[in-house]
């Protein structure tokens, strides 16, 4: 899934997978921070965005 999304042009660093047990609070914090940093580096998404029709 990650490979195919990146193949069609989603930047590496935007999509993250992790397995965290409910007992692994520190791992959760670490992963959340890593995801935040990685996504911040890639910047706002430019592609694969659906804009809703503008209604008057």
């Amino acid at each position: 899934m990650k490979n195919l999304l990146e193949h069609i042009g989603i930047e590496p660093g935007r999509l993250h997978f992790s397995w965290i047990s409910s007992a692994e609070a520190t791992k959760f914090v670490d992963v959340a921070n890593q995801v935040y940093e990685a996504v911040k580096e890639v910047g706002p998404a430019q592609v694969f965005i659906k804009r809703l029709a503008e209604v008057a």
Partner: peptide, 10 residues
């Protein structure tokens, strides 16, 4: 590059 890939598939 990611952007080129996106353009290719689009």
């Amino acid at each position: 590059e990611p952007r080129k890939k996106w353009e290719f598939f689009t």
